[in-house]
Design a protein around this nucleic acid. Structure first.
Lengths: 218, 218
DNA sequence: AATAATATTTAGGCAAATCTAAAAATATGT
DNA sequence: ACATATTTTTAGATTTGCCTAAATATTATT
């Protein structure tokens, strides 16, 4: 697969939300910041190669082959993100662009050794699951904290708003990625939440809760 | 710079042996396994971009800009080689192909962090020197063991012949990359050498010595 | 120095991936 | 259901990097 083909396969996978739902030409064009006519061209090629199912005007889905390819790319992307954060001290919001490049490196041996070297991580720095070598992985159960049900426990894996003000708030209140959070109670009146974070009780506003992502442990 | 441009710049650098000697069109074509006419095309483009000096029929040299680019690519290539060997347990002879891909990844921050993470290595797994961030580096003093003068001390950094038989020989005799070797004496008759390796005296044939590379410590 | 051999460049073309503009198919609104 | 709007495809052009074949320049030989 060429670099460009890989980009399309990955985009189709993500637009299909990991399910294998049909993705339209325009959606791909928007998602990839290109023109619909370019998408049509490429989709024909991918169809010829057996990576997508395509009928004119009907949109595309990934074939089994295409889905495997997508998972392999996603796996590489997320493993590299873990590497950048865990080993090279990048912060979680700096890694995407570089991982976009690294995901195209072709060497199965390297990626398997990298996986082992990182300790076979199950989720990436944004809380998204990392497919195993054979394409298996747990569906991501990632929610904004304010959407989590009462009693739910999860790991804080990301922020939606990465403004300096918000990050400072987290720092001051000793909330960090990786912390375990349990939803104790929700106030109906203002949507604020009582949570337990790393064993400590806390009361946070809905606004805060709506900017924190939780990885729910099933 | 595109991927292809980077490949040309690197090839011109290596063919010029790191000195800035003139490199011919045919030499580049051979070195890159492509056609002379393709080289002419690309060399014109590189000249327009100020990366090489080029006059028709006269061959090319790198400009200061071109040389900086080349050193940056070589730096990345060799740092990744160290990473693959030191961290991912690749052997020295497996890394080249993957490093050829990794060297094109664009992120100055990443490569600087990688450098630090690896402990600012000075030589790669083949004994070649790694340019520093600002393009400085020690000329490689890398010699075949049988060409080293008496009394010379160096580090064993590579093999010329990587046949299984030879590697087995090294293994059986406990000679490994990284070992410190001193040339004690040379027999004129058969060219065999008396060496000290990791403190232990040894007598090896010229044939063995002519397949082992030494990185001479200045 | 003239000719032969070699090296290099030019000219013209091809494939990949993109684009614009126009045509065709599908979807939407009343 | 019909006209209109939107989506998708086609047709034709462009750029990058490469190719072959032919032309031109340089180098080597006698």
């Amino acid at each position: 697969m060429t670099l460009s083909e890989e980009d399309y396969i990955k985009a189709i996978y993500h637009l299909g939300k990991g399910e294998n739902t049909t993705v339209t030409t325009n959606a791909i064009a928007k998602g990839m910041d290109t023109k619909p006519s370019s998408v049509t061209d490429m989709v024909k090629k991918l169809s010829d190669k057996g990576l997508v199912n395509y009928k004119k005007y009907q949109g595309v889905t990934l074939t089994a082959l295409g889905e495997n390819s997508a998972l392999s790319i996603v796996r590489k992307h997320r493993l590299w993100e873990v590497f950048l954060v865990d080993k090279l001290n990048f912060s979680w919001d700096e890694v995407h662009e570089v991982a976009e490049q690294l995901e195209h490196i072709k060497s199965e041996k390297m990626i398997d050794h990298l996986d082992a070297y990182l300790g076979f991580p199950k989720i990436d720095p944004h809380g998204d699951p990392i497919p195993s070598k054979d394409g298996e992985f747990k569906k991501s159960i990632k929610k904004l904290l304010n959407e989590a049900s009462m009693g739910v426990e999860g790991i804080c894996v990301g922020v939606k708003d990465s403004s300096v003000a918000f990050l400072k708030f987290l720092d001051k209140n000793k909330i960090a990625l990786g912390d375990t959070v349990t939803v104790i109670d929700k106030e109906e009146f203002d949507g604020s939440l009582h949570i337990k974070i790393n064993g400590r009780n806390m009361h946070i506003s809905n606004q805060i809760a709506s900017n924190l992502y939780l990885q729910i442990s099933e």
